[in-house]
Design a protein around this nucleic acid. Structure first.
Lengths: 336, 336
DNA sequence: TTGAAAGCGCTAACAG
DNA sequence: CTGTTAGCGCTTTCAA
């Protein structure tokens, strides 16, 4: 493997000069530079970025720490789209992306910052982490630049990007109300996600501004899981037959509600309106196609990476970015 | 950041001893080792793997080079599931995964081996690469250990894992024939994928062993794209109304055919049977649910990583692995 | 069982 | 504009 030493020898200059020429410094004679470039090409040189990282104390690498990257979670491709967005940005900016995963018990033994420091990543993006995850606290404490997806924490070294979940939920519930529904249930996710909290708040706000009273019994947790949501929906609809519409904190759970309705012989959307959240790919293929709140997952990732690299390259403080959502009206909700 | 030097100082030994103790060599006094371990923990030490990589000349990192990781390709989550499988294996074996992506024009300027050598990855997995991709030739030439997904090339340093595409296609077409179809068209992908070739071959074999003649006019390319497939299917079905069943080289294209049928007012499955390939998530949600050939994408990734790490750790030659597929009978194909 | 010393490939003062 | 020198954090002979 060719090194700058080899180039120096062949070109008849010192390694310093080679380094400078290769890195585009302008204090190199143009002829010398050309010569060096030529030799580098001839020798098929590639820089050893481990060596460079070692001396510069940065690796031009960002880490991605996710929990949603395993066989089970394949159905809801949220993580994947976020990843695509991150990847896009990172490759434009000439960084590399290394994937940490928290699913293996082995890795679990390592702390968050150990993971990052060992790999010498310059910064890290966290996604799909629950609020009780021990990693999360470490983030706030550690001094590694970090962007959180969907967790609103802002410190000297951590920023976040998320969508406007309150408004998003409000859009969906407003829509149901506009369609004439007065008895609207909600299937929320679980209590370990900030987004659940926010979406619940949006639901309440919407009811409130329409003069409807909030009934806590009409809100149940479906754990962001299709089947749990189905079970919970069956219970809910059986217990409170007056409910004519359900807002779900995720499309996956809305799919579960669709199944619950079928199970209870309630026709959709005539006898039950359903709205979801996320606009996952499946949403438009469900029958009936799901009315939902779309969030741009790719953009979530893209912006997270952009923000992180901005922090890394010194242009300022970490900050927060809140993306818009969009109500997608399809056929799972109708006028009553 | 703590280094072994710090540990050495505090523990009152030399860096050599620290290194040996930390790496579990047995020529260290047990008391010394305990002391060192304790100091390391106290100082919250994490090894600098860049430095280690530099001297050992390996990075415990494997690269993933894919082309299917961008906004457009999100629909068919093949790449994502492969990635999950790779990630699972890699984290079990305590390697890290770095993502290269070929979508940025910038990266395009770098050759395959440059990418790998710069990052000092120990080996690389390629997926979603077309057969005319310039990277591909480089693989064969370079000496970097490499596993290809779905490209059957076997050399000293490159192995592959794929599924039995001939048999898979045969299963689907056999099924259509068994249902009584005699006029079976095929929507293939494009000519730049080995799998297309193989699936076509399976189609031919199936026809052949049923005594049906192969008609090249009944085979068109849909470019693995839903909409192209739809267009091509419309043309095909208009030109050859005698066709009663279509085998598609991917589910995504089968979805396109479903749309084409709707467009032509042909009821599915009564007036047209369709079989797909892949068993993507959407397949079971389509209406009618898609009869298809399932391949275990997670396993594809998992096995590729396993094989690569095996090669890396010296236990033998690269080799080939061919996974089974499974016919999934749903409702898009019926007896005639 | 331990330590001194060399060196992996690179960048960065500093001096000329 | 160019070279000398030191050193990033680690592993690994070699010698004690």
């Amino acid at each position: 493997m060719t090194t700058i030493k080899d180039i120096a020898r062949v070109a008849g200059v010192s390694v310093t000069t080679v380094s400078r020429a290769l890195n585009g410094y302008d204090d190199v004679n143009e002829a010398t530079r050309r010569k060096i470039m030529q030799v580098a090409k001839d020798l098929n040189y590639s820089p050893n970025i481990l060596a460079r990282g070692l001396v510069m104390n940065k690796s031009k690498t960002i880490g991605l720490l996710v929990s949603g990257l395993n066989r089970q979670s394949a159905k809801d491709h949220f993580t994947f789209e976020v990843l695509s967005g991150i990847n896009e940005c990172v490759s434009e900016k000439d960084y590399d992306l290394v994937l940490f995963s928290t699913n293996s018990t082995k890795q679990r033994e390592k702390t968050y910052s150990q993971l990052c420091r060992e790999r010498r990543v310059d910064g890290v993006i966290l996604s799909g982490i629950k609020t009780d995850d021990p990693y999360l606290q470490e983030v706030v404490d550690s001094d590694i630049p970090c962007i959180l997806i969907d967790i609103p924490i802002l410190t000297d070294t951590v920023g976040y990007v998320t969508t406007d979940n309150v408004l998003g939920a409000k859009k969906a519930v407003d829509h149901l109300i506009r369609l004439g529904h007065r008895h609207i249930g909600m299937i929320n996710g679980h209590n370990l996600a900030f987004v659940s909290e926010r979406r619940l708040e949006g639901y309440k706000e919407s009811l409130n501004s329409a003069g409807l009273t909030f009934n806590p019994d009409w809100v149940v947790n479906g754990d962001y899981n299709e089947d749990t949501a189905r079970e919970e929906a069956v219970k809910l609809l059986t217990l409170y037959p007056e409910i004519t519409a359900i807002f779900c904190a995720s499309d996956l759970m809305a799919l579960g509600v669709l199944k619950a309705a079928k199970q209870l012989d309630r026709n959709l959307p005539e006898q039950l309106s359903v709205a979801g959240y996320d606009d996952i790919q499946l949403a438009s293929y469900a029958s009936p196609p799901l009315t939902t709140v779309s969030q741009d997952k790719f953009q979530l990732g893209y912006q997270a990476a952009t923000m992180l690299i901005q922090m890394l390259e010194g242009s300022g403080q970490p900050h927060a970015l809140i993306l818009e959502t969009q109500l997608i009206e399809r056929e799972s909700a109708m006028k009553r």
